[in-house]
Amino acid sequence: MSLSAHQLSVGYHGQAIVKDMDLTLPDGRFIALLGPNGCGKSTLLKCFARILPAMSGEARWQGQNLHAYPSKQLSKELALLPQTQPIPEGIKVQDLVAYGRSPYTGFWGKLSQQDHQIVEQMMQQTGTYELKDKLVSELSGGQRQRVWLAMVLAQDTPYLLLDEPTTYMDINHQVELMHQLQRLNKQGKTIITVLHDINQAARYCDHLVVMKEGELKHQGSPDEVLTSAMLKEVFSLNAQIHRDPVAGTPMCVVED
């Protein structure tokens, strides 16, 4: 099972943002897509999530063209948490999380006993169980984000794509989310997320993919990728690399 790009170009209005990319994402890892604004990291993720079509080349899932893969089957294997989410009206938290089971239910969407168990378990895992009878529209932004996370977790897919999941969160919720993703990764889920914060990525993720101007520049473990030379090359930034005093992972400190 793996996600890969083959001579893949993706963009908007005929303008390629990701250009002729060849990339194979390793299985079972916690992967961060990094790069300066406009480098195409979110565009690439959107193509993997089938929000955007390939302009040329192909995105592949298990060796098959991702965009021709059967929708229902794919929804059991690959889940997406989009960056901005609508605020659905009149839907309770538990009902929203239950929609995460739709790929598995029969046509009419009736939940089995097992589905109910999974929904409850995911609400507990994301700390949203106490909110289950509330309307999603009544929640705070951070709570709502956790409810959406519970929904994609209920999808029970081996792969999970996230588009800048920490962007609108307070720092405590950011840390909480990264810990949670780390736990899920340890349980066997492959996680691919677009992140802005390089130090956050280096601390929690175990595989970094760095892009610039639509091209793949580096990929590998944080120790291999996060170097002064890379920061200079990709971000035009003078920075030193130090060890995170708590986790021992590399972190960058910007020079004046």
Binding site: K72, S75, Q85, M151
Partner: peptide, 16 residues
Amino acid sequence: NLLQLGEDNARNLGIN
């Protein structure tokens, strides 16, 4: 029902 969650979520949940 799933379309009410927006296109991206509906697609993600297996809707063509």
